[in-house]
Design a protein around this nucleic acid. Sequence first.
DNA 1: CAGACTACCCGCCAAG
DNA 2: TTCTTGGCGGGTAGTC
Length: 321
Amino acid sequence: MLKDVVAVVGDQIAAFELGTVSEVFGLDRSDAGLPTYDFAVAGLRPGPVPTTSGWSMLVEHGLERLATADLVAIPAWPTGTAEAPPAELVDALHAAAERGAWLLSVCSGSFLLAAAGLLDGRRATTHWKYTDLLATRHPRVTVDPDVLYVVDGRVISSAGTAAGIDACLHLVRLEQGGAVANAIARRMVVPPHRNGGQAQYVEAPVPDLTDCDELAELLDWVTAHLDEPLTVDALAARALMSPRTFARRFRALTGTTPHRWLLDQRLLLAERLLEDTTLGIDVIADRAGLGSADSLRHHFAGRRGISPQTYRRTFRRSAAA
DNA sequence: CAGACTACCCGCCAAG
DNA sequence: TTCTTGGCGGGTAGTC
């Protein structure tokens, strides 16, 4: 049961990272039939705490607030020092973990989890700027530099800043089903599920705008025609580029290849249809342009690790809305 | 599930 | 000179 959510902050608050957690769990969306959470922010002690942006927030709770949390979120943590975090904080985190609570870090928050020993022997990630540092400072942690978030047991770590949204939505999906996660995503006007790792944002931090315009239009068109047979060569022709140049521009913009991206879009559509309809697998495969039910099952197993039927059973929830 | 057949795509390289 | 383009080979992945 996910009800009591506490975000932990230290001597400084990363406002945006805290905001990602607060936006998912702190807002009352009961008007849409969505679950509400008891959301709180806890610090080492109650009182005003400066943000890294220069202004301050009033933190109302101390660490004792963690005692009842189902989820403890750590929006960020200083990376500049290898100094051990306060013992009472480490104790509170361990107590939460032993109680079976979820732990979720955003950005550099994984440094606190690691320093508390809660990532030992686990896979984890952090902002791409810090992945090397995390691996060096905490050799017992298996750092995955190219993902938006990692789930290992009941510990979730996510990459830089906005990836916290992806991680939070994933947790909601796990605990409360795809319908709830998708509805929250719609309210937040963010994609319910982003593909690809953070590497795509490292390689092309500022995509060429002309590429953006040309290709973005094509991507829109493709997502509206997923049921049709599409080849990469045909897409290149539609974009008025040679296949080779098309592949290069495509990777520069999206961080993945045309065919992989197309498959991902088809699987996302298939997921939506599995969640929202009772259509048969073969009909869904057809509508998503996956050719055959066999092909759909094959790719589902490969990318999601489960069968379409299992996915449907797991994520099909009475859309409480 | 195996096997044949395509399509994809990435390193390489010459040309502009 | 440096950068981008686009054709080619061939290993890999997807499709039937």
